[in-house]
């Protein structure tokens, strides 16, 4: 019998990165459970969970429930109520996603290089499924200057590379002004 040790999806990528008024750092590992209500079960599920997020919503109950797709939410954190499997398909996604937080006065300017959406228009907090360049992206807007950016674990390197490039150019433009 062996004991396995865990590794970080951003290992070797030299986070945090700081360029100008933007900073990128990894989000510490957290339990993520994907919850997809079965047809007709959304209400029952919502009462068991204390709510279920509509598209784009982030609900803070005892856990953080983040809408992530068609009839699907991620529950961030431990302590999921028992018996949810009667109402929903559950799958562990704690290891499937790599999350990084981009924060700072230029965070929106950096994302404007990579995400084809007007992020100014989003509520705080809220979630969006979109693309970051060619990468699949789950974006959670935490504030006007802080965004959690999640992509598939295998693409953590590309995520940080794309953001690094955009951050450098935004910072260089600032330096010109």
């Amino acid at each position: 019998m062996i004991e396995l040790s865990a590794s970080d999806p951003f290992a070797g990528l030299h986070l945090p990165l700081v360029h100008g008024a933007a900073r990128l750092d990894s989000v510490p590992p957290v339990r993520i459970t994907a919850i997809a209500p079965l047809p007709g079960q959304t209400e029952a599920l919502a009462s068991a969970l204390g709510g279920f997020p509509a598209p784009g919503e982030v609900l803070d109950t005892t856990l953080r429930l983040v809408w992530v797709g068609r009839g699907q939410a991620f529950a961030f954190g431990e302590g999921l109520p028992e018996g949810l499997e009667r109402h929903a398909a559950l799958s562990d996604q704690s290891d499937g996603w790599a999350g990084a937080q981009l924060e700072g006065a230029d965070a929106q300017a950096v994302l404007a290089r990579l995400v084809a959406m007007d992020l100014r228009a989003l509520a705080v907090p809220s979630s969006v499924r979109t693309l970051l360049g060619h990468l699949p992206l789950l974006l959670v807007k935490q504030s006007e200057t802080a965004f959690d950016l999640w992509t598939y674990r295998s693409m953590a390197g590309s995520l940080s590379h794309e953001l690094d490039r955009a951050m450098r150019m935004v910072a260089a433009r600032r330096a010109l002004a």
Binding site: P55, G56, G69, R70, A116, M117, T130, L131
Partner: peptide, 11 residues
């Protein structure tokens, strides 16, 4: 229908 108006590149 879920996400609202989105760029064609996502489809």
């Amino acid at each position: 229908p879920c996400c609202g108006w989105r760029d064609m590149r996502e489809f």
